[in-house]
Write a protein that binds this DNA or RNA. Sequence first.
RNA 1: UGGGCUGUGGUCGAAUUGGCAAGACGUCGGGUUCUGGCCCCGAAGGUUCUAGGUUCGAGUCCUAGCAGCCCAACCA
Length: 700
Amino acid sequence: MSTDTAPHFIRDLIAADLAEGKNGGVIHTRFPPEPNGFLHIGHAKAIHLDFGMAAEFGGECNLRFDDTNPVKEETLYVEGIKEDIRWLGYAWDHELYASDWFERLYELAVQLIRKGLAYVDNQSLEQIREGRGMFKRPGVDSPFRTRSVDENLALFEKMRAGDFAEGEAVLRAKIDMSSPNMNLRDPIMYRILKAHHHRTGDAWCIYPMYDWAHGESDALEGITHSLCTLEFENHRPLYEWFVDHLDGLPVRPRQIEMARLNLSYTVLSKRKLLRLVKEELVDGWDDPRMPTLVGMRRRGYSPAAIRQFCDRIGVAKRDGVVDVTLLEHALREDLNETSIRVMGVIDPLEVVIENFPEGHTEWFEAPLHPTRPELGMRRIPLSRRVYVERDDFREVAPRKWRRLSPGAEVRLRYAALITVREVVKDAAGQVVRLICTYDPDAVGGDPTDGRKVQGTLHWVSAEHAVSSQVYLYDRLFTVPAPDAEEADFTTFLNPDSLQVMGGAKLEPYLATVAPETRVQFERLGYFVAEGEGGARFNRTIGLRDSWARVERSEPKPAAPAAPEEKKMTEETVTAEVIEVSAREDREPAKEVITFDDFAKLDLRVGVIREAGPVKGARKLLRLGVDLGEGRLRQVFAGVAKAYPDPSVLLGESVVVVANLAPRQMSFGLSEAMILAGGGGTDRLGMTTLKGTFLPGDTVT
RNA sequence: UGGGCUGUGGUCGAAUUGGCAAGACGUCGGGUUCUGGCCCCGAAGGUUCUAGGUUCGAGUCCUAGCAGCCCAACCA
């Protein structure tokens, strides 16, 4: 199953051990999850390595649940974890639990006591912590450290029998209270927990600690290479101390540590993921925005893409942050190869082909994959009314525009060539319909005269369309390293990480796909079917979009559109929003708002009721804006230079972005932004509206 | 002078163990195209954490620093 070929130090170490004939020349690994949460992409890295190394060197890999803490663990999680591993494409050789070894572990502990290497300590938790000392100060021996072997044996038996209450006694290894390594200052091996265990029930009231249970379980089940993450490096001396002081172990396991995976724009700590779930910041462990395996599965990730990603990131000891784009690349690479192509319109704009016969349907055959004919064909109907993507039409075509605009001819993929003849708008000026004509000779979209057609669009026949809800997912966080920031990571949650498009229209073929089918909506991205009948699709990831890059890099017009013209081109707006936004942003380039974002803005008419300077900020004006909400919103706008006398603004109608998160500035809370713009200071100004508007009116 | 680990283009990561600093992602430019996708071609980007030293030759060895991460749960 492993496709891993890149060299890394763990492979080298294993190969060397095998060459030396250690442990009889066999390799046996294990993946040891604690059943207290769901697996995430970081675990996938470990799984890939554990199973991959065993497979590559002809050994076995166990699944062993590290269930040594009954108060935190649940059966629910063990089933989930097993399902995730299977889904990822791995099969374990033996399913085991640390709890399977409780009796053997107990015997080994007795062996250590007999050797005088472990003792029962009756100090309190606080006393033990106190006695352990500090980093720079050695610990002191417990007064119970010198108990006789017989006494320890008897006491340990009483611990197991339940004669002590929780906290009254622990079993400790007798190592070195002055070791610079805290783990060797007589670590606790057993504590008393009168809790019900999900597998052993009430059979035990003493439970082994990680360091004791993990290494010895490894040894007992014949694990030769125990791969784990860097934070256990300090534990290795203890791991080795235990196996070296015990007789009769079948193998001498070796612990090897590697860096855990960190991914940009997300968090990968179980604690933080649990918080997202518990505080309902996401819809559960399987929310498609979660980096959990269940979440990624619902998002549409393929196991192969995840495995490929694990290959690409390699294995090393340096801890860094892997760029999500690497994951996304692996995803697209696999999905491009495996996903069938279909058409779906997410934000429909109606097109009427006026010279197409009423009531007539034309059917076209189209391949389900551009380079893999074996995946078959599907039929696509064309009728007089079709839907195209609203974003594919511009009343005023920008430079290099290859889509719909008045008079322009484009291709409806696989079907026809159409030209926009008329733009129909509603009372508010919103485009509601395009009247087009098509070229009846260009059957299937092939012009007979060899003329060049500038663009090809996806579309859906209105009459045959399947209605669907499309869930658009985006990154969960707005910053590359949410847990490296000073503020709590939840403050960086991306408010636009989910957008539900309720009115999507899909080609009829989509009604037939099975749940979890991964498809590419041509020109839009990869999506996965959730449920039956095409009723819901989740966007896995968009296509690479070089048009978006072109758009971003186009020079922006210097001045805003004329004040009385409410409609503006997107470039204008982009420039203006930047103009008013705060300057201390760390990554200005990322602050550019795309057309998609623009559609999410709630633009409203605001009437300025208050206007005045801001003390300590030459460029800012403090405005009180009436949005018809029964109160004034306070807005700080960087337009002071344009209005030496702010009072001229009183009573003016301006365009307000009403649905932005309020921004805390040092002078006060800014509760909205006002559209303004200009090529230079001399032409700086706010867009004002002339005519009769009511505060709160929507601007389109 | 607590201990351990790690420092290689923006990111992840190799370097036959002392011999021309791989590759991938990302970025930029071009070609192709009935997906502004895929694919193809090209480019930019490095004082290998710093300073000394050994050597014909140092990412690799030595010395001294610096930076980051981990460790004081009866968690794993």
